[in-house]
């Protein structure tokens, strides 16, 4: 029993070992490395597709990470590095799609949702029944009678 418990504890400790980042890949300059990571996190791994190349363990992702780092070390801007990859893999490689005609609906969807919600609220307001007219003198007398009886 104690052995099992110890094993479980050890396995819990092993969590960080899942991080695939190989320190040998990193650039020596921490500022450049941070930039390379920031660029890599915006780029889709073409093999696993829902991971960025920074998170992916695929061979191709590792090659792309290396290229990003070479270009960062060569002094290229973030925009230039991403453009280099988009020229080869298209906008599909960007995890954050650019704003253009093809993505108008995608980027416009929050505005559309807000408009639809606002429209629904306005419609509900307009359809709300009018408040009842104030009581007439006869009704007020009747009400007083009813209240006095108690």
């Amino acid at each position: 029993m104690r052995g099992v418990l110890a094993l479980v504890l050890w396995l819990l400790l092993a969590g960080p070992a899942f991080a695939i980042s190989d320190p040998a890949e990193a650039l020596p300059d921490p500022a450049q490395e941070a930039r390379a990571v920031a660029i890599g996190q915006q780029l889709r791994c073409l093999v696993c597709q829902n991971e960025s190349i920074e998170d992916s363990g695929a061979d191709l992702a590792r090659d792309l990470r290396r290229i990003v780092r070479q270009q960062v070390a060569a002094g290229r801007s973030n925009r230039e590095v991403i453009a280099w990859l988009v020229a080869r893999y298209g906008n599909f490689v960007r995890l954050r799609p650019p704003f253009e005609t093809g993505t108008l609906l995608l980027w416009g969807s929050p505005v559309l949702a807000l408009a639809a919600g606002g429209g629904a609220v306005l419609l509900a307001r307009r359809n709300r029944p009018a408040p009842p007219p104030p009581l007439s003198a006869a009704e007020r007398d009747r009400l007083r009678q009813l209240l006095d009886r108690t």
Partner: peptide, 13 residues
């Protein structure tokens, strides 16, 4: 062998 030309072609696999 390094797979570098393949990236210029936009190879995904």
């Amino acid at each position: 062998l390094p797979g570098r030309v393949a990236i210029d072609w936009g190879l995904t696999g």
